[in-house]
Design a protein around this nucleic acid. Sequence first.
DNA 1: TATTGTTATACTCTATAACTATA
DNA 2: TATAGTTATAGAGTATAACAATA
Lengths: 155, 155
Amino acid sequence: MTGMIEPLQPAEALVRLSHMVQHVFADVSRDHGLTPQQTQLLCRLVRGPVPMGTLATALHLERSGLSGLVDRVERRGLVERVRDPHDRRIWHAALTPPGQTTAEAAHQAIVTRLDTFLLDLAPDLRALLGPIVTTLLTAHTNSTGVPWLLPAPTP
Amino acid sequence: MTGMIEPLQPAEALVRLSHMVQHVFADVSRDHGLTPQQTQLLCRLVRGPVPMGTLATALHLERSGLSGLVDRVERRGLVERVRDPHDRRIWHAALTPPGQTTAEAAHQAIVTRLDTFLLDLAPDLRALLGPIVTTLLTAHTNSTGVPWLLPAPTP
DNA sequence: TATTGTTATACTCTATAACTATA
DNA sequence: TATAGTTATAGAGTATAACAATA
């Protein structure tokens, strides 16, 4: 029975899949001169500026940790802080033009890499993936009460 | 159309799913007094000792990084280094009895948490998850040439 | 000489606690 | 007083390069 691949239980399947996605994320990030966390941050901003607090929650970070993360990409000219016009306590993180370019390139590279995996899947199964994940994530929230599926423009 | 959830493209579905799994990993790790990387390391050892070099490749780490990671869990008595009987250059990382207990508890907690998500899925779809992931990962390797599906006892 | 693993160094990531500015 | 964000500090994770031990 050498070479046989054991059947995957559903929970283990999720973990294996996640592991692969993380590697793709890490590889693409390195190709673009980013850390995985920086890539994740940039991709969260492609649809527009986000208040620091919202961003920290979305990225599962303490506000202080996000502060440093934004510092480092700001130092590289990829992100800037913009003051909220209505509440002067709030600062939004926003992509600069180079940041927008980098974010979109990294996002596209990730999708492209993942699509090479998805090509092995029969089209009817591939079409099930969206609904399956929607079902899995709907009606659940992360540990801070934020729903998994709603505003977040991932990856 | 407020409140509508956009359909997920397959690649984005994988990213969202991975994000959720990472959060589960982080939360469970914290509950057990571990970092996510330490949990990942411990779970890799539940089926027996693994040479440092193999472990570094499996965890997508440089050997120097793994060295430090193992140092920290060894300091806490969860892992020990064992010399290979045939090749004295090689050291295996191995769980201590407390490490085995912790590793199995964390693994079980992760599976239990993920199962709460999987319960929302119709049984026939849930049964498709294993085959889908097997199809996705078979015939692919990570960036160092190691196949995604074979020996690795995840999570 | 080639391979396995460690050490040294530098930087990034992350959490906690104390702090500043604004509401 | 409460909230948004930062700074200070400490530890953990990660890569590169130089090194020691073994093959």
